[in-house]
Nucleic acid binder design. Sequence first.
DNA 1: ACTGAAGAAATACAGTGTATCGATATGAGA
DNA 2: TCTCATATCGATACACTGTATTTCTTCAGT
Lengths: 228, 228
Amino acid sequence: MTVWDRPEPPPRPVPLDREQIVAAAIALADEGGLEAVSLRKVAARLNAGPMRLYGYISTKEELLDLMVDEVQAEILPEGRPSDWQEALRNLANGTRQTALRHEWLADLLGGRPTLGPNGLAVAEATLAALDDLADIDTVMRAVETVSSYFTGAIRREIANLRAERATGLSKYEWQRASGPYLTRMLATGRFPALTKAVYDGTDVDAEASFATGLDWVLDAVAAKLTRP
Amino acid sequence: MTVWDRPEPPPRPVPLDREQIVAAAIALADEGGLEAVSLRKVAARLNAGPMRLYGYISTKEELLDLMVDEVQAEILPEGRPSDWQEALRNLANGTRQTALRHEWLADLLGGRPTLGPNGLAVAEATLAALDDLADIDTVMRAVETVSSYFTGAIRREIANLRAERATGLSKYEWQRASGPYLTRMLATGRFPALTKAVYDGTDVDAEASFATGLDWVLDAVAAKLTRP
DNA sequence: ACTGAAGAAATACAGTGTATCGATATGAGA
DNA sequence: TCTCATATCGATACACTGTATTTCTTCAGT
C-alpha cells in the first residue's frame, strides 16, 4: 500500500491546557452568560471532544471555580496605597468592575470559598490592607463585613441591571409607570413606605449608590479600628 | 360493550394549584438542594405529568421565584419593635434563619429582584423600620447597605458551611491541618497576612460573626441618620 | 517488529426544560 | 337530552446536558 493510497493521518490533536479551556469557557460566558457554558461548547471551541476536558478538570464545578479564579486576577490593584480605606475601596471597586465586565461572576460571587491562587491573593490583599491596624480577629471581622457588603451589593446591582434589560426600562421607570402588577400592589395601600420610596425616591445611579454604601461601611470599620 | 368489559376510567386528576406545586418544590429543595428540583420530580410528587405544571407556571425560573417568595414569608417578624435597629436586626436574623432552614435560598438570594407579595412585604418592613428617620433617599441607601451586607454574609456563611460538610472539617481546622494545597500555598510566604489570619485567628462561630458585622453596619447607618 | 500503555474519540445513558399533538372530559347551546 | 366546541391532561418528542464506558489509534520501549 503506497503513500498515495493511504489517506493523510488525522491531524494530531492540538495540545490543550487548563488556561485555554478556562479562556474558552470565559469567552462563552461573557457572550451568553453562565448558561451558555456547557462542556460540549467549551470543547467544541477548542476543536476537541467533550470528554477531552476531563483530563484537565474532573467536574464542571471545577471549571467554574477556575473561571472565577481567573477573573479574580483582574481585581488585584497595581500598587498598594498606604491608606487602608483607599486600598479596600480599590478592591471593592475592582470586584465591581470585574463583575460588570463578566456579569456571570455575579452568579458565582460568594457561592463558594475561593481558594485558587488569585482568590488567595485577593484575600491576602484585603487582609494586608488592615494589617497591624488592629488585632487579627478584629481585622478578620472587618474584612468579612466589608466584603459581605460589596458582594451583596454587586449581586443586587447586576440583578437589577438584568431586570432592566429584560423590560427595557429602568427599575424606577418601570415601577412608576408600566409594571401593572406592581402598580396594583402598591395601590392596595399595604406598602406605604415602599410606595413612598418608589414614587418619591430619586433614581441615583448604581455606581454612586455602591460608593455611598461602601463609605458607610468603611466608616463603621474605622470606628471599630481606632478603638481596640 | 358492557360495563364489565370497560375498565374503570382513570381517576380524575387531583386538582392542583401553585401552592401545592411550590410546596412540593420546596420540599425537594430542602431535601436535596436546588439541583434536586426538576419539573419532572416536582410533578411526580403531585402524581402529575411534567407538562401539567405549565398551566401554573410558564418557566422553571418562575417556579424558583415562587419558592423564594414563599419562604420569604418566614422572614417577616410578628410584632414591629419601636427601635429601628432592633427591627432591622430582626429582619436580618430572620433572613439568616430562613436561609439556614432552606439552604437553597442562599443560592437564590440577591440573584434577582424579589417582587412577589412576600418579597414586597419584606421590603416594606425594611423601609418602614427607617421611615421618618431621614429623607427617603438616605433611607433607601441605608436599606440597601444593610441588606447588601446580610445577603452577602449569609451567602458566605452557607458556602463555608457546605465546604465544611464536604470535607468533614471546620474551615480553620482544614486550613490549619490537612488541606495540603492550602498549606503549601501558605508556605510559599506569598500570603503573610492570610497566613497569620489562618494560624492566629480565633475560629468564632458564624452567628456571632454575623451579628458583629451587622452591628457595625447598623452603627454606620445610625451615624448617617442622626446627621441629615 | 511487537507489545504495552496512554490518550483521544465515539458511543451511550440517564436526565433536563419545554414544544407539540392527540385524546378525552367538561360545559354551553340547541 | 344530545351535540359540539373548548379546555385540559397525558404522551410523545426534541435538543441538549454532564459524565461513564468502551473502542480505537498512536506512540514508547523492548
